[in-house]
């Protein structure tokens, strides 16, 4: 298996959605597996009594730290091994709990050729199964032009200003 060809700048249209990344249904086990992997002992992620009675939450919480990596995965999967997910920003506005199925999504809002590469702006987010948005944000992805070289790795933004 070699490099995965990601999206090509010339094919991108403003307004298009990129392939979504779906996770879930989430369970307490998924949350505990993540909390243990990163050694996060915040009680709201595994102590139901503390989460509901002390903090007044509806249940234990899906980690914001986990959701952020899903947002990065959304962009990295789309960019493949030929592009680069350069910038990603989001706010954790919604609470997600066991039982939720989460869909990370992105929609192209702008595109610009810079040097030998293309820069694509997106709005991004993460919907639960009820269609509620919990993680709104923006992203900027660098893609190759059709027939052009892949985006060099490691990524250096200076390549966008080179002729």
């Amino acid at each position: 298996m070699g490099d995965t060809q990601g999206a090509v700048f010339d094919d991108i249209e403003i307004g298009q959605y990129i392939p979504a990344v779906v996770k879930g249904p989430m369970t307490t086990a998924h949350i505990v597996r993540w909390s243990a992997a990163m050694e996060n002992w915040h009680r709201i992620h595994y102590d139901w009594k503390y989460a509901t009675e002390h903090d007044g939450l509806p249940d234990v919480m899906v980690n914001g730290s986990w959701k952020q990596h899903v947002m990065i995965q959304l962009l990295a999967d789309w960019a493949g091994d030929t592009g680069w997910a350069w910038k990603v920003a989001f706010q954790f506005r919604g609470m997600n709990v066991p039982g939720d199925t989460l869909t990370a999504w992105g929609r192209v809002t702008g595109k610009e050729q810079r040097g030998r590469f293309g820069v694509v702006d997106l709005e991004i987010g993460m919907l639960d199964q009820k269609g509620q948005e919990g993680t709104p944000g923006t992203a900027r992805v660098v893609l190759p032009l059709r027939g052009g070289p892949p985006v060099p790795y490691p990524f250096d933004p200076a390549i966008l200003d080179a002729a």
């Binding site: 914001g64 990603v88 989001f90 954790f92 990524f155």
Partner: peptide, 12 residues
């Protein structure tokens, strides 16, 4: 304590 969000710039 809650995590409000992130802005990332990614290089490598």
């Amino acid at each position: 304590l809650m995590n409000g969000g992130y802005e990332y710039e990614l290089f490598r």
